[in-house]
Design a protein around this nucleic acid. Structure first.
Lengths: 148, 148
DNA sequence: TTAAGTGCAAAATCTTTGCAAATGT
DNA sequence: ACATTTGCAAAGATTTTGCACTTAA
């Protein structure tokens, strides 16, 4: 089962003219196994000492430039990353879905929903896109806090 | 004209059981004269060497705790602050208006608008509140970039 | 082979903490 | 007078940069 995924990752990297390296594969693996967006510090914990901190920063920023992942800020303002939908590329990012931030564990989830309201900005302000962030308690934290 | 404002600031501080000090008055003055939210680094530039960096951080966090200002993250994830509406206090923050982030100057503006859509989260996720961020080009950057 | 990617060291930011001195009430 | 607030110094945390070594193609 892991091999299948690895093949997809290799394709993805090739498609973006990126060399297939271990750090990049590991990051893709970790992100694809995870429901929530991930930050560099979390990523660093997960890979142990396998990959240098600086490399992780660089992998993330390369992926973001190529449109492989997109950046989302969590409630603390820490940058977290999640894999983009397949319609993203280095020209355009289509990550206009709702993000959910859990105020307990601080994790960020991308929600499927896509109802976008029209925002009326004051004259002179040009709105190019809109992001919506729902804040609350995620599924996992609610389970843990049942009965308290 | 400045004295009038200073009186209001003094009232505001007293109301919140805070001592009336120069750093606090200066911060309130700067924020009230500004349309956009302000970060600690910007604040530091504006006061010159008058106020210690650490004092600014502490003034901002005290004000936030008391509900005098609220924190907004800009596009880079830097914390910026704007004065709250008068309905805010240390128990509750009512800053559920739309924020506008300029992708050129990176400034954050609070928009008056308040149409809040219902967000349908997946089962298990409890949405407590929703923030909306419009991203685009602000009035001032559009003026500067006219004709380019 | 060779351009791209990695790892290490060191720098640059940004933010917090501890404590003594200064200040508002 | 006394609790609060400030300023300084120093520590922490996070992110970036420079450069030599390594590796994928």
């Amino acid at each position: 089962m892991e091999n299948l995924a690895v093949d997809e990752f290799v394709d993805l990297l090739r498609k973006n003219k990126l060399k297939v390296t271990n750090p990049r594969l590991q990051v893709l693996q970790i992100m694809s196994e995870r429901e929530a967006a991930i930050s560099q510090p979390e990523l660093e914990k997960m890979v142990g000492g396998d990959i240098d901190r600086v490399t992780l920063y660089r992998v993330l920023s390369t992926f973001e430039e190529k449109g492989i992942i997109h950046k989302i800020l969590d409630l603390q303002g820490t940058a977290t990353y999640a894999v983009c939908s397949s319609s993203c590329n280095d020209r355009e990012h289509h990550d206009e879905h709702v993000h959910f931030s859990c105020e307990i564990c601080n994790k960020v989830y991308c929600l499927p929903e896509s109802i976008y309201p029209n925002i009326a900005a004051p004259k002179g302000f040009l709105v190019k896109h809109v992001t919506i962030n729902a804040i609350g308690i995620c599924r996992y934290c609610q389970m843990e806090h049942k009965g308290e």
